[in-house]
Every structure is written in C-alpha cells, then in structure tokens.
C-alpha cells in the first residue's frame, strides 16, 4: 500500500480509553471511523498501545461483521437479508445488485465507488425489502428499483471526508 497513514490520529483514542477494561472493540470501532477500514499498521499500533497481542486483534476483527481489513467504497450498500425482507424478495434485489456492480457481497467495485454488503436485519421490517446506502434507507425495492437507486450515487464524484 502506497499511502502513508497518519497514526497520530489514534492518539486521542488511546488517551480516552486509557486504562479501560475491554477497550479493544470500541477502539477498533473508532479507528475504523477514522480510516474507513482497519489497515495493518493501525492494528499493530493498537496492539502495542493496548497491549493486546495482534493474533487476538486479528481474531476479533475477523469475527465481527462490522470490521474491515480492506478499503471500502465511497458508498456502502447494505442489502438487508432479514426474514421480513427475504419473504418479500430480498434475494432477487441482492442478485440484481451483484449483477449490476459485478461484485459479491463483501466486495468493493473496481472504481471504489460502492462496497456491497448484506446485513441480517436493519430493524425496519416495515420497509421490506430494504437496503441502506450510507445512512439512507431505500424501501420496498424490486430488483429493478434497486439498480435505479444506485444511479443516484454513481454520479457523485467524491465522498466528503469524515
């Protein structure tokens, strides 16, 4: 990876969680908010500062669905595959997204515009089938509508920096 990471952005985090029991997961969550994903250097730095072996951190990061080891797309699509959505045709919606974006769930498009994910339930079953793009809900989708919605996001050039 060519980019150089500014690890000093983690300093506040360590200060805030200093001496806290079980700080690993909140620190990882906040680190991911900073960098968009969890690069190896960041994990090594967290390992050192929190005195948690890297093996354990890697185990935690690969256990929880929320953490990413690779850069994410500018827009994150969460296609809900919960029960209510499933019953109302979420699988067709997902398949149509996969066809359109040419990535599998968990993947990111080559132009880094979209990351496609599935989620087990976003707790908005009345919107089923639903997907979230970033923080917006898109409800009562059909395979075609889902692809139409993407177009709104395809044209936006840059995500504003966090």
């Amino acid at each position: 990876m060519a980019e150089i990471l500014d690890l000093s952005r983690l300093d506040n985090l360590f200060e805030e969680h200093q001496g806290e029991d079980g700080a690993l997961i909140p620190v990882l969550q906040e680190a991911q908010n900073i960098y968009g994903y969890l690069p190896e250097e960041v994990l090594r730095c967290i390992s050192q500062k929190l005195k948690v072996p890297l093996s354990k951190i890697y185990g935690v990061v690969t256990f929880y669905a929320q953490f990413y080891l690779d850069p994410r797309g500018r827009h994150v699509i969460k296609s809900c595959q919960g029960t209510a959505c499933h019953v109302r045709g979420a699988k067709g919606v997902l398949e149509s997204l996969i066809r359109e974006l040419k990535v599998k769930p968990g993947g990111t498009t080559a132009d880094l515009n979209f990351s496609l994910e599935t989620v087990a339930c976003v707790g908005t079953c009345f919107l089923a089938p639903v997907m979230m793009i970033d923080k917006d809900y898109h409800s009562k989708l059909t395979p075609k509508r889902a692809v139409d919605v993407l177009k709104k996001y395809s044209q936006k050039p840059e995500r504003e920096e966090a």
Partner: peptide
C-alpha cells in the same frame, strides 16, 4: 457498549466476551 455485528453475542456468555473485548 456498541456491538460489532455478531448475532451470537445475544447469548449471555458471548455478550460478556464481547464486552471484555474478545
């Protein structure tokens, strides 16, 4: 504490492990 996306953490002992950072 915010969960990190694991259904099994609804189980008591898994939830505890998660709060402990494991």
């Amino acid at each position: 504490k915010e969960g990190a996306g694991a259904f099994v953490c609804g189980e008591e002992t898994a939830l505890i492990a998660s709060i402990e950072g494991r």
